[in-house]
């Protein structure tokens, strides 16, 4: 599984960067600025003479942290909402689904725009914006899968035995859709990395001097004629990360088929 390998390497690099990077990420060395890739600086240096490789390594931490929390928010709110809608049906379901439709009208970027307009740009606001956008994704998925489970015999048996809806949801429904949710989380994680990069590129996400792939690309754009290599490496890092996560998601889905296919 290439996806798993890429993801593991990424996590390892991110953890490594917490204790060691080839060069300190914040130390400015103006005479050594804008160097092309060399033996000392594998990926060259930026406009302040900082080592690009080190900053990309540290950027991985930022991307992972933001995406992890954002997907956590989305799943943490979306899954209970979806499960509730499936268990209660009726008015509750209608309200949850309308709420979904409504959140859907606001792409992550649009809600981020609103939030930053009020509270100013920052990593936390980016997390909230991406997280909000993830809620309907998980709510919809959970509801759909849970609804089909509620029709199944073993759930019916539990109901006949007098189990409450909450107990059944916790004991039977959620364990049975866990694998489905894990696959979706992998996919949403990849999307969150892309969204975080986009927000940081626009200056609405992670703020300097904290290293972030999107921000690095933003800074590289003004120097595109001078040092085009700066515009290449952070983008490659994003692409490889997202590719790895998507492949991981596909691999997990294949692994967990055919049960998944029936539920979806």
């Amino acid at each position: 599984m290439i996806g798993l390998a890429v993801t593991l390497v990424l996590v390892a690099v991110a953890l490594l960067s917490l204790v060691w990077t080839p060069y300190p990420i914040a130390v400015i060395d103006v005479p050594g600025k804008l160097q092309p890739p060399s033996a000392e600086h594998w990926l060259g240096t930026d406009q302040f003479g900082r080592d690009v490789l080190s900053r990309i390594m540290a950027g991985a931490v930022n991307s992972i942290a933001v995406s992890l929390v954002a997907v956590g928010i989305g799943a943490g709110i979306g899954v209970p909402l979806g499960a509730l809608a499936a268990a209660r049906r009726g008015l509750v379901e209608e309200v949850v689904m309308r709420f979904n439709d409504f959140t859907f009208a606001f792409p992550a970027l649009l809600s981020a725009v609103m939030i930053t307009a009020l509270f100013g740009p920052g990593a936390v606001n980016a997390i909230v914006a991406i997280g909000i956008f993830n809620i309907p994704v998980f709510a919809r998925l959970t509801r759909g899968a849970a609804l089909s489970l509620w029709q199944r015999d073993f759930v019916l048996a539990a109901r006949v035995a007098g189990r409450g809806r909450t107990r059944i949801t916790l004991d039977h429904i959620l364990p049975n859709i866990a694998s489905l949710l894990i696959v979706q989380m992998t996919i949403q994680f990849a999307l969150a990395i892309l969204a975080e990069a986009g927000l940081s590129y626009l200056g609405l996400g992670t703020q300097p001097p904290n290293p972030s792939w999107g921000k690095m690309l933003n800074e590289a754009q003004t120097l595109m004629f001078l040092a085009p290599q700066l515009a290449v490496f952070p983008g490659l890092a994003i692409m490889i990360t997202v590719l790895g996560l998507n492949l991981l998601g596909d691999g997990l889905r294949d692994l967990l088929d055919p049960r998944l296919r029936r539920l979806r």
């Binding site: 990069a197 999107g214 595109m224 983008g235 692409m239 997202v242 590719l243």
Partner: peptide
């Protein structure tokens, strides 16, 4: 997997 703004760059 390619971020659209990077592809644009």
């Amino acid at each position: 997997a390619i971020p659209n703004f990077w592809f644009a760059m």
